[in-house]
C-alpha cells in the first residue's frame, strides 16, 4: 500500500531519446501488443513521414485501429493491454515508463470513428482542450482559427453558443477535427473519420485532410480503399495484426509487392 503511494507520487526521470532521420515524424520499432493473451499487433515497424498523409488499410480486425491508438497511448484506457517494443515520436520514446501520456496526447490529436462532440456549446467544445492544457490563448481567436481551418466557420459562426449536438453528423465530425486542432498538435490521428458520414460530408472531410497536411502530419485509418488512394501519400497494409506492406500510395495500389496486398486491393479477398 505504502509502496503504491510512493510509486504514484514519484516524479519522473528524463525520458530516453534517439534522433530520428530528417523528414520522419514518428517511427515504431518491433512493436507488439496483447489484449489479455491475444496478440493483436505483431512486431510492427513503420515510419511516419512529416507533413504527409499516411493511410492504414486492411480487412476488419487486422489491428489498424489498435495501431493508430498506440500513437497517442489511447490503448492505456483499455484494461489488460500489454505492449512490447518502442514507438518514437520526435525522438522521444512514448512507451517509456516515465513518459506521461497526457503530454503525448497534447502533441498528437485524434479524431474518432463516430463524431463525439461534448454536450457543450460549439465554442466550448473547441476551447476545452486549451482550458485543460492551461494554454494562454484568447478563446474567440482559437475558436475562429480552428473552425476556419476545419472549414466549418461559415456554417456555424452565428451559432457558436448553441449545443454542439444540434449540428449534423458531418458538421459534428468537422467540429471534432477543429477541436483537435485547438491544442496545436503536430500529428493528427484519424480513426475511420468518415465511416459514419454520407458521401457529401465525406468529400468535405477529404478536402480538409488535403489542407491539413501542409501544417500537420496525418495518419488515417480507413476501410475504404478509394479513400486511401484519394487522400494519402503513403499507405500501410495490415493483415491479422501484421504489417504486410508499406510504401508510397501509388506503388501500393499500382504495383503491390506482396500477393496478399494485391488480393485485398483488387477485391479478390477470401
Amino acid at each position: 500500500m505504502i509502496n503504491k503511494v510512493l510509486e504514484l507520487l514519484k516524479e519522473e526521470k528524463a525520458c530516453q531519446r534517439i534522433s530520428l532521420p530528417p523528414g520522419i515524424k514518428a517511427k515504431t520499432s518491433g512493436f507488439s501488443l496483447w489484449y489479455g493473451s491475444t496478440k493483436a499487433l505483431k512486431d510492427i515497424n513503420i515510419e511516419i513521414k512529416e507533413n504527409k498523409v499516411t493511410a492504414i488499410i486492411g480487412p476488419s480486425g487486422c489491428g489498424k485501429s489498435t495501431l493508430l491508438r498506440c500513437f497517442n497511448r489511447m490503448n492505456d484506457t483499455i484494461v489488460s493491454v500489454r505492449t512490447e517494443g518502442n514507438i518514437w515520436l520526435d525522438g522521444y520514446d512514448i512507451y517509456d515508463d516515465v513518459t506521461d501520456c497526457v503530454d503525448i496526447r497534447r502533441k498528437v490529436g485524434m479524431v474518432f470513428q463516430k463524431p463525439n462532440p461534448f454536450p457543450f456549446s460549439i465554442a466550448n467544445n473547441i476551447y476545452y482542450g486549451c482550458q485543460v492544457n492551461d494554454m494562454d490563448v484568447e478563446k474567440d481567436e482559437v475558436v475562429e482559427r480552428c473552425l476556419k481551418q476545419a472549414a466549418l466557420w461559415e456554417e456555424v459562426k452565428d451559432r457558436l453558443s448553441e449545443n454542439a449536438l444540434s449540428l449534423s453528423g458531418g458538421q459534428q465530425q468537422r467540429l471534432c477535427i477543429a477541436r483537435a486542432l485547438a491544442i496545436e498538435p503536430e500529428v493528427i490521428l484519424m480513426d475511420e473519420p468518415c465511416s459514419a458520414l454520407d458521401p457529401i460530408a465525406t468529400a468535405k472531410i477529404e478536402d480538409l485532410i488535403h489542407e491539413l497536411k501542409k501544417d500537420y502530419t496525418v495518419v488515417i485509418v480507413t476501410h475504404n480503399m478509394q479513400q486511401a488512394a484519394r487522400v494519402s501519400d503513403y499507405t500501410a497494409y495490415m493483415y491479422l495484426g501484421e504489417l504486410i506492406e508499406f510504401g508510397k500510395t501509388k506503388q501500393i495500389f499500382e504495383k503491390p509487392r506482396e500477393e496478399n496486398t494485391e488480393k485485398y486491393i483488387t477485391g479478390r479477398f477470401g
Binding site: 503511494v5 504514484l8 507520487l9 516524479e11 519522473e12 506521461d100 497526457v102 492551461d134
Partner: peptide
C-alpha cells in the same frame, strides 16, 4: 504541484 502529480493525488483520494 505539477498536473501529473495532482492527478495522482486525486486518484489516491
Amino acid at each position: 504541484v505539477s498536473r501529473r502529480v495532482k492527478d495522482k493525488l486525486v486518484h489516491l483520494t
